[in-house]
Amino acid sequence: MNPVSIFRILVSLLCLLPAWPAHAHHVLGRPAYSLNEDSNTPPSMQVETQIGDYMVNMMVFPAFPKPGEQGRLHMYAALLDNSQEYQSYQGKVTFKVRDDGWFASAAEVLGTQEIDDKVYRQGFVFSKAGNYIVTAEFQVDGQPYIIDMPLRVGEPTRLMPIGVAAGAIIFVLVGVRAVQRRRRTHPKAKRPHEAARGEA
C-alpha cells in the first residue's frame, strides 16, 4: 500500500465524521455511572448528566437491588441558567424499564410521577434477576428528554463462567488428544514438517 492510498483512507475516514447524523439534544445516553455514599443515604447507583437545559441526577436505592426487594428511583432535574436560585423541572416524569440485551423486549412503564419536594420518586420491585435499563422521560417545550441508566438486579451467574471456561479447555484438550491418537494410529497422516523434524 503506497502512502497516497493510506492518506486517501485516513482522509476519507476523517471526512465521514462531520457527516455523522446530528440530532437535537433531547436524546441522551448516560455517562459512566458511579456509586455514591453520604451520611444520610444508603449506597446508591447514580448518574449525573446535562441534558438540554437541565442537569439531571438519577439515583437507585439500594445500589445492588435483589429480586423481590423493594427499591426506589430518585430523580432531580435542575434548570441550568445563570441565576443562583435552584429551579427544578415541574412537569411529570415517566419511569420505564426494559431488558438490557441484544433482543430486549418492549419497555414496561413503572409509573408517572409528579415532583415532591424537588425530587421525583418511583418505587420498584423486580421479580427476576438480570440486567435492566431504567429510563426517565419528560417533555420540555414539546421535546422529549430521555435518560437511561443501567441497573443490575440480583447477583450475576457465578459458576457458569467457570463452567464455560473449564468446558472450553477440556473440549480442546480432549480434541487434541483424539487428534494425536489418530496421528499415532495413522502414521501416513503425519504432517510433512513433523516428519522432517523427526528425521533431523
Binding site: 455523522w20 440530532h23 437535537a24 436524546v27 441522551l28 445516553g29 448516560r30 455517562p31 448528566t49 446535562q50
Partner: peptide, 18 residues
C-alpha cells in the same frame, strides 16, 4: 471526558452505555 461523551451522545443520538 464524561461531558464530552454526553455532548457527542446528544449529537448522534446515542443511548445506553454510550
Amino acid at each position: 471526558w464524561e461531558r464530552w461523551m454526553s455532548t457527542l451522545a446528544r449529537s448522534i443520538g446515542d443511548s445506553g452505555q454510550l
